Computed example of a mutant assay.
Amino acid sequence: MAYEELKQEIIDYSKSIGIDKVGFASVDVFTELKSRLERQQDLGYQSGFEKGSVEERTNPVKLMPEAQSIISIALAYPSRLKDAPKSKKGERRGLFCRASWGKDYHDILRDKLEKLAAFLSEKVYGFNYRSMVDTGELSDRAVAERAGIGFSGKNTTLITPEFGSYVYLGEMITNVPFTPDEPVEDSCGECTKCIDACPTGALVQGGQLNAQKCIAFLTQTKDFLPDEYRGKLGNRIYGCDTCQLVCPKNRKKDFHLHPEMEPDPEVVKPKLVPLLSMSNREFKEKFGDIAGSWRGKKPIQRNAIIALGHYKEESAVEELIRLMKKDPRPVIRGTAAWSLGKIGTEEAFEAIEAAKQIETDEQVQFEMDKGLEFKETARQHA
C-alpha cells in the first residue's frame, strides 16, 4: 500500500472531522524524556497522577508490541471568555483554568481518535491501534513534539506556531509504518517570562516543573492546602494559566473553532458562596461536563473557601461559620476556620473560638489556631 498517499488522506480526513493539527511520529524510545522522568522521580517532582512505569511511558512498543507509528492530534481551545461576569464585593467568583472550559476535552479528543480509527480500519487490513488522551502512559506533549505539532516550551506546554499553547493533545499508536514528520524548532530563545511569573516557583528551570509546587496540581489535591500556597491561590478554584498567559507565543491567540468547547461563563467563573452548600448531585449537574470536575466537589469547595479568605469577603462569614461547625469533612471545617480568620471580623473570631471548644479533630483545631492568629496579627497592625 502507498502509505504516503494514505497519510495525506488521513490529513484531509482529520480536517473534515474537526482536528486542527495532525502529525506522525516514530515509535522509537523517548530517550530524552526517559532521563527527564527518572530525574523527576529522584527529585520528588512528580504529581502522583502519572500512569505507568517510566519504561511504559517512554517506550510505545511496551504498550503495543506491533507498534509501527504514532498519530498525534491537536485541537485548539478558546483563551478568552466572552461576556465574563464580574467578581464584585458581595458576589465573589472563582475561576476554572482555560483547559477546563467547555465540554470535557478527554471526551472530545477520544471521539475524534475513534473516528480516525474507524477511517483507518476501512483502509488497512488488520489495522490495530491504541489511543490515549492525557490519562494514558505516553506523554502527549513528547509525542506531539516528535510529530511536528509544536515544540516544548519552557513552561512545559506544547507550543504550536498557529495556536500557541492553547491546544488539547491526543495520540494513537498504530501498526501502520507511516513516515515520521519533522519536529518544529524550539523558539523560546532567551525568554523566561513563564519562569519569572510562576506564582509558586514551580518552574524550576526552562522545561522542568516541580508538580508538587504547581498550582494546577495543588488545586486538585484533596487534603489541607499547605500554608505557603494559600496566599498564591487567589481566586483559582481549578488549574492555573499564568505561565500560558504571559507567554509571548500566546499573544492574540484565541480560537473558537469547536462549539462544544465554548465556555459557559456561569460554570467556569462561578459564584463562590453558592458552591459551598452544593450537594453532590447539584455539583454534578452544574460542573459534571467539564474536565475540572473529575476530582469531585471537595477540592473545588476547599479552594473556594480559600478564595473567599483571599477576598476578605465578609458576606461569606455566615456560610463559612456553618461549614466550620457542621460540615462532616475535616478539611472543609478546618479551611473554613482559617478563611474566617483571614476575613477577620469580630463575628468570625468569636465563632472560631466557640467552635474550637467542641472540635475533636486535631488538624481542624490546628487550623482554628491559625485562624485566631490573624486576630493577633491584626491587633499588632492596628
Rank of each mutant, 00 (worst) to 15 (best):
Q244H: 01
P330D: 09
A197T: 05
I159N: 03
E347N: 12
T179R: 14
Q363I: 12
L275C: 07
A291I: 06
I10R: 07
T345R: 10
H256Q: 09
S100N: 14
I343S: 03
E285C: 09
D196W: 09
T219V: 02
G309T: 00
M324K: 06
A84T: 03
R110M: 13
P328H: 09
G231K: 01
G94D: 07
Y13H: 12
G309I: 02
K112I: 05
C97N: 15
R92V: 05
M172A: 08
G164H: 03
K115M: 12
A67W: 01
Q41W: 11
K312G: 04
T135D: 08
D289A: 14
K356S: 12
D181A: 06
L169D: 07
G94M: 03
S279M: 00
K82I: 13
A99G: 05
F287S: 08
T200P: 07
K252C: 15
G126N: 05
K123W: 03
D28K: 08
S72F: 03
I70E: 04
H106R: 07
V27N: 01
K7Y: 07
K213E: 11
D264E: 13
K312Q: 11
I237N: 03
F349M: 03
S293D: 08
P183H: 10
E171V: 08
G341I: 00
M261I: 04
L257Y: 08
L203H: 02
A197F: 09
E260V: 13
K222L: 14
K89Y: 11
S72Y: 02
L33F: 00
R322C: 04
Q357T: 11
L257C: 01
C97M: 15
F366G: 13
V124G: 06
I358K: 10
Q8F: 02
D20H: 10
R379L: 15
E347L: 15
T192Y: 12
A118P: 07
L33Y: 05
R302T: 01
S100L: 09
S16E: 12
Q68T: 10
G126A: 04
V29A: 13
F283Q: 01
R130T: 10
D28N: 12
K326G: 12
L272C: 09
F163L: 04
S100F: 13
L138P: 00
K326C: 11
E285G: 09
E4M: 09
A216N: 08
G296M: 09
T174R: 01
P78G: 08
A144N: 01
S339D: 09
G206H: 02
G150F: 05
I11W: 00
M278W: 01
N128C: 14
K312H: 06
V317G: 04
C191D: 08
K325S: 11
Y77W: 03
E346S: 15
E190C: 11
K222T: 14
G48E: 00
Q208M: 15
I237Q: 02
M324G: 00
D223S: 14
